[in-house]
Design a binder for these strands. Sequence first.
DNA 1: ACAGGTTGGTGGTCAGACCACTGACCAATA
DNA 2: TATTGGTCAGTGGTCTGACCACCAACCTGT
Lengths: 235, 235
Amino acid sequence: MFKEIEQKKIYLQILEQIKDNIIEGNLKSGDRLPSERQWAEQLGVSRATIREAVRALEMIGLVRCQQGEGNFIAVDYEDTLTQPLTIMFWLSKAKISQIQELRRALETESAKLAAKHMTPERYEKIEKICRAIETETDESIRAELDKRFHYEIAIASENIMIKNVLLSSASLIEALIKDIRIAILDDPHRGPLIDQQHHIILQAFQNHDPLKAAMAMSQHMDLIDDFVSQLEPDD
Amino acid sequence: MFKEIEQKKIYLQILEQIKDNIIEGNLKSGDRLPSERQWAEQLGVSRATIREAVRALEMIGLVRCQQGEGNFIAVDYEDTLTQPLTIMFWLSKAKISQIQELRRALETESAKLAAKHMTPERYEKIEKICRAIETETDESIRAELDKRFHYEIAIASENIMIKNVLLSSASLIEALIKDIRIAILDDPHRGPLIDQQHHIILQAFQNHDPLKAAMAMSQHMDLIDDFVSQLEPDD
DNA sequence: ACAGGTTGGTGGTCAGACCACTGACCAATA
DNA sequence: TATTGGTCAGTGGTCTGACCACCAACCTGT
């Protein structure tokens, strides 16, 4: 008979407005938001309310706050999920191996899509990184290159959702196991094997063979699985 | 020589405290937080600051705020990612097919892990849902059962990270395409095919065959892929 | 031309106030 | 007695106005 009257919290309304403005193109990465005082006046709300909205937006990585300078739309949304994912990890008392399984799922799908959409330019870029890994001797640089290898594949997947979730989970793992890449790359048993696996993945890319790329990446992930389960035995 | 002095924003310090308290077991799902006034006094900060922290926590689904009642730790963290994922989707102007690809990656891995860890009790539960789907005629109930089918598999995967990301992306898709399940299930061509696919998945579970489960689920996802790409043609 | 301080604007925090809402208690009523 | 409706204390939601720390840009005297 009577409709329920529902008053959305103001900060959610502000979020809506920002979303709409971004979709319409009025607001884009790096843009500066109105100053809090000015904005509050425009919207007819108090500064405290604006600040609550800004705080919520900052939490999910959409807004970057710089004291004395202003509030800005984030330059990229890659880290939008890192914070929430980290929280979720702690709260649900998950184990590192579970994130690794998550990463495996995304990494293989990412490789699959990358093989599907691979372009000569991107292939060359990734292959160059691969070659650099083989010749580099400094372990921390090798680790950095390995990171870029996966990063470029994620880009080449042309799926921004997978890319972002993948990067977030990867950085969560790295935050939990400091220098995990170095530890894995540096093992003399694994080193050559990794280079070989990289080559198989590359080859799958070159042949636009999604299935083979996925399988190769999955085997590549096995290495990391082993490493993780080794330092985090099953209960 | 000298370390940079960094004054973390207060709301981040509060987040840290909550995290620690949860990890130590002092704070658990559904628990009530101190009232804002009381809490502010305890921590020696103003209520506005407390509120900014609460707002940030609410945004990522960790805290539920009920006017006149109090602030509570969320009963589950399943929705921790839904909001950020939704924002990310809008901001990066992603396409629905990209979320679907994300979901595919997680759904197949979820099935794989579920087959690995399947117990008789869980199998029975899932099989029961499957049978109910076949006999049910009301399409909206069928859709609800289908949702539970996937939900139980996610639970059976025993990977809470994958489960939560999966559920978030699934609910994002459903938010974007209202009644997508009904639309897919209701197609007379697809109906029997779906039941058949469910059976294959079940069988893989029964045989503890991760690979087969993953493949079956992947084929199951093909159906949804088709549906999505049909109403969202490539650019 | 330049090193110095000044100044206006920004976000960060605070204190105190009022409103809307909830739940529990209690009195009046049928 | 059982139900209704009011009261009240406590909660989150919002507002106001103030002060601080910080930054960038503009002076200003050398």
